[in-house]
Design a protein around this nucleic acid. Sequence first.
RNA 1: GGCGGCGUAGCCAAGUGGCCAAGGCGGAGGUCUGCAAAACCUCUAUUCAGCGGUUCGAAUCCGCUCGCCGCCUCCA
Length: 493
Amino acid sequence: MAVRPSPGGSEGGGVPDRPVIRIYNTLTRSKDPFTPLAGDTVRMYVCGVTVYDRAHVGHARSAVVFDVIRRHLAFRGYQVRFVKNFTDVDDKIIRRANDEGVPASAISARYIEEYRKDMATLGVRPADEEPKATDHVPRMIGLIQRLLKVGMAYEAGGDVFFEVRKFPRYGKLSGKHLSELLAGVRVEVDERKHDPLDFVLWKASKPGEPSWPSPWGPGRPGWHIECSAMAIHYLGESFDIHGGGEDLIFPHHENEIAQSEGATGRPFARFWVHNGLANLGSQKMSKSLGNTQTIHDLARRHPPDALRLYLLGTHYRHPLDFAEARIEDAERSLERFDVLFETAGRLAARGAPAPGADGGLLEALAELRTRVETALDDDFNTPRALAALFEMASALHAYREATDRGERPGGPFLVGVGELLALGGVLGLFEKPRDAAPPPEVLARIEALVRARDQARARRDWKAADQLRGELQALGATTEDTPQGTRWKWAPR
RNA sequence: GGCGGCGUAGCCAAGUGGCCAAGGCGGAGGUCUGCAAAACCUCUAUUCAGCGGUUCGAAUCCGCUCGCCGCCUCCA
């Protein structure tokens, strides 16, 4: 099917009836309606991590936020081509390698693996491409050569610099003016620079550093050039969305724009999306401040969905204060969903539940579903989407009670839980079973104790029953007595 | 100093001109239960940092004041 023209001045995507997604664009400082450049395909590049240490809450936030953005775009019917890079050559990696007496590549390989493991436990789906800077050095060199050719860069003693004054739109993303930036220059100025704001595209390598051959001698790429080169390579010279933490707006993203547009003469990314930072005790969380909480540790103490719920409970552009107590809050609130899934599982296991009059359940859920969808369409408002998800849970619980009393058929309940699961999936929630089953020997012991307790209860021997409940609790099983008999939940710790 | 943002209930957090100011955690009472647990129901901000202004109408717009944070340097 050919791209059809859209008369009447409707959205340019050529797909009728698709709800408009509005995205806050740092470039325009406003929420703009989003349409991709080419048909249904959304091309999106996000700055990943520099791999010299484990991922912390801030990295997780960014990853989860862009994971949700990607999921929602896909949910709305776009083909998303998502690229997220690894910066695997950098001063800090080199320093760490020297400290440990291993090659830089060993450090980066180690932390790439750790990052991937951490993100997998958080339910962050891998990007379609996860390129490493060191695999694209020739492309960076090519881009630098283009810049030299058009006169926007110059070489000086094995280094190559970008000449900021040659790019008139410099500062358009960060809202900074050259004159003000000049006044604020705080770093020592390399006197080979034509202008203090010029930044390095290529640096000659010092002894003991990783290096690549280049027309300017052995060296390594500057930080910013890798993202330009990789984004252009995987997504083209112009693409839809470029993301990252808001601390990257200046200078990283500003410089990326200058380099890319300077070289290609075409607009680089159309939408710039930046997530707010994670704070610890009203201070920015960062490795250099040493106040980080690693995902590795956090994931040992909390279920992944609790971490996700916590991260998505604040709008992505606002600062997020880290407090473990809030993750615990999220963990508690998750139980309301878990009970639902458990009940549904039990119902389904019992055979095809009866369809029938749903007492308005499905209609109520449909309305809530719309609320989830429109919340996400509105600049990915996950807190609002979550609120609607919680209301769906309430409606389902109320219905569940009616089902227990035999007043309502189980069929609509199962349908509703399916809806909830599907919508949670847009946020990456409810994808994994909460807790693994207990080990077989523990399971057998638990089941024996539950039976013994049921017998004690039948004898109305409350003392024995309470004691057995205590033993079960010690094993990690919480009992619940229901009209249908005793149930137990596996929740060790 | 320049640029950007925030201040909503005990805590967290949506809402950015007009139904009763979402939702979660916590708390109180109730239903159910042998007691619990879980769930459900009800309640928990006449008010949105403060002071002025615009408007028929503002948490939402404008001005000022106070407090807090980010970027301007490697950083998600």
